[in-house]
Design a protein around this nucleic acid. Structure first.
Lengths: 256, 256
DNA sequence: GCAAAAGTGTTGGAAATACACCCATGT
DNA sequence: ACATGGGTGTATTTCCAACACTTTTGC
């Protein structure tokens, strides 16, 4: 076994002056890398949104006959001259038209037979998009939002990928204020709480929820209230990202 | 743009009875997957150990001339017929002789020029090994333990990979009782505390540390004490994995 | 006026922190 | 005897969970 794909081989070559010497060159790794050991690489994006008090995910029909009755994630092959992350943003842009989002790599999935076309390793990313800010204009392959609670039986191993990303979202949203990118710029506390309840799948105490967010002190009262609600309107807030960046706490503490 | 690598093309073929029909077959994706869009895929392992009250990491010399003066992580190409995780365990076994370890995928790294031999995407894993249980027998490529505090200027992008894995370890060790796999089977509380202090890079209050771990109630007093210490010997404990599995708490709570 | 959700405080318990003294062993 | 780290308890504070009534608006 060699390290970093370099075969420990020496070639004996003759130099101009007639003597011989041993050479190790990069050619060897290049041929190693470029020949047998290669696989197709793709990116799949799990794009979450929030609408009508439900957490949603964007799915699309596969062009693959084998999976034509199933939904699949938004994916594409990574070009040989393209960073993985670049590919993820490209796919997101192609599918949704958005380009200013949080995008996080989650996991690589590489079971041998996960794709019927041959060995394809895929890197999963998730993203959150604001449904209000992005009425879908491209509807190729029946692109549309699905309730996460009803996502099942996806094509390929996409069910597993989706679930891994969903769990990651649930965890991250408790550690970082990601949720705000799913909401309109100005939102009520009720909307915020609905969002957390939808993502985490639990009910929260309204007073404690407010207390917690006000104590964090990242919400700015914009001096406006909801309109067209059939009850007392709530105040609207914005999230103060700058303040968050300055104040965010370091995570510490042993707690199994 | 098509989804899942299927080119929407039809072939018109003649059937036996003379009529023609349109066919979509898997051949198209197979050729797509098997031709241009392929990259080499590797796994790199960041293997942590604990010895002399220091957190250590296993490094090796690269066989690559370009990096012969630098240290690198333990990596190898993934075989086309091999799961990624399988490859990670294979590398771990080849390099360390151990096969019963915690191994966690961390991140895929895929910058275009990260490897001089061409496009190589690598999946990073980390692992924890018990230095007491594994005196290194294979010392190929100068394999040995380095203090994590002194790891710098690794080959390729391995510095970045190492740091990502180290941060992941710091985080995970606060959420899960990983640390125990770095310690001897029987250990004193002082060793346990030293381990946590080494991984997290902080000092902890001894009384509160003890209180916390005893309160968790996963430590079993094995009725033995340390020997050959130049002071009052401490009691030795084992970690009760079964009880942990039964009791482990679900993580919840919003806390930016 | 009534339905519906907004807004608001207190209390009790649990957990985290800070902190100081005596004990057992090897030398 | 002394040096070294083992072992222990308490008081204080902070955080979290539970819980109910009044207010504002649309209809």
């Amino acid at each position: 076994m060699s390290n970093n794909f370099y075969e420990t081989e020496y070639e004996t070559i003759l130099t101009n002056n007639g003597s011989s010497k041993h050479v190790k060159t990069l050619k060897i790794i290049q041929s190693e890398v470029q020949s047998i050991n290669r696989v197709a690489l793709s990116v799949d994006c799990v794009i979450f949104g929030f609408d009508e008090n439900k957490l949603k995910v964007l799915l699309i029909r596969s062009d693959l006959k084998k999976y034509q009755s199933k939904w699949s994630l938004l994916g594409d092959l990574v070009n040989p001259e393209e960073d993985i992350e670049e590919a993820a943003y490209r796919i997101l842009l192609d599918r949704t038209g958005m380009d200013d989002l949080y995008l996080e790599q989650v996991h690589a999935f590489g079971h041998i037979n996960r794709h019927p076309g041959g060995r394809v390793v895929t890197i999963a990313y998730y993203s959150l998009i604001n449904v209000q800010h992005h009425k879908l204009k491209k509807l190729d392959n029946e692109l549309h939002w699905h309730d996460v609670a009803e996502v099942k039986d996806l094509a390929f191993d996409h069910q597993e990928i989706f679930e891994t990303c969903y769990k990651r979202l649930q965890k991250r949203v408790q550690e970082h204020p990601l949720g705000f990118s799913l909401l309109p710029n100005k939102f009520s506390l009720r909307e915020l709480q609905n969002l957390y309840e939808a993502i985490l799948g639990i009910k929260l105490d309204r007073r404690n929820f407010r207390k917690k967010f006000f104590a964090m002190d990242f919400l700015v009262d914009v001096g406006e209230i909801e309109t067209n609600v059939p009850h007392r309107p709530g105040k609207l807030y914005q999230f103060d990202y700058d303040k968050y960046e300055r104040m965010k706490k370091k995570w510490s503490g042993i707690d199994f």
